[in-house]
Every structure is written in C-alpha cells, then in structure tokens.
Design a protein around this nucleic acid. Sequence first.
DNA 1: GCCAACGTTGGC
DNA 2: GCCAACGTTGGC
Length: 152
Amino acid sequence: MNYWLMKSEPDSFSIDALYNRPNQTEHWDGVRNYQARNMMRDEMKLGDLIFFYHSNCDVPGIVGIMEIVKESYPDFTAFDPEDANFDPKSDPEDPRWIMVDVRHVKTLIRVISLKELRTYSEIEELALVRRGNRLSIMPVTAAQWDFILSVE
DNA sequence: GCCAACGTTGGC
DNA sequence: GCCAACGTTGGC
C-alpha cells in the first residue's frame, strides 16, 4: 500500500466539504500538472491512504486522512468549457487529464501546520517541506506517514 | 498583495 | 532543442 499527500484550497474544497458529500466520497478533479497526473494514473491504488492538506489559507497544514476508492479515470471537467479547469486540448477520445475518487477517513483532532512540519528532522525529505515545492500530489513514505500521525 | 519558484508555451 | 516570456502556485 502507498501513502500520499494531496493539496486543496479549503475555499474551493475542504476536508469538511468532503465529509459532507454523499458516502463522504468525491472525485478529485482539476489536477493539471503532468507529474501529479502520472502519479495518480500509474501509482495510486485502491485502499491507498492520503493526507488531506489545506493550502493557500490562514493555517496551511495537514487536516485529515482519506482513501482511494476508485482508481484513475478521465477527468470530465477538462471537457467542460464552463469549468474553471477546462482544457481545450484534452480530447474526450484521448483524455489528457484523469482523476481518482477519494473517501473521507478521518479529520485530525488538530491541524498539523506546515510551520510545525518544518520543525521535524524526521520528515525533512518530504517534498512538502522542501524549498520551492509546488506539487499538489506527492508520495509519503511509511516512515513519514507514521511519524506525522504520531505527533497529532 | 507581494513575490519566489516553478511549469508551460512558443518563437527561433 | 534552447530559452525568454508568461502564467500559476502558494507561503508569508
């Protein structure tokens, strides 16, 4: 099983919004970065666990856990001219972008902020805390996963 | 609101 | 294939 971290701006989609969806499940649309797409498409498997990270907000940080409940399939929002993430170059016959479905597993009892995460040498290799990193989806090792949960 | 870092685009 | 220009991300 693999572990991941995925970012979302809470103003557009938050951990609470996920919790309130039917079956606490939602498709993770709008990924428009090839590196992130490739990880989602090639490596994310049913049952993988993911940290939900709130970005671009008052207290950026890890706020919860979710799991993959459906593997890679076409991101239909790319075909919709009305959608903010519309991509005219994504052909429905040969979709450029894909998504997965995630289900809420847990909301952490507190936010583990980016500021706090930066203080732990145990996770200094985590892409999130590395300089200039902007990837919206990144792998987390089992050791990093366990450590982060141990400080909740 | 600023701006550093980074990814993408497109001319050549 | 190079790289300057541009757009986006996201912390602060």
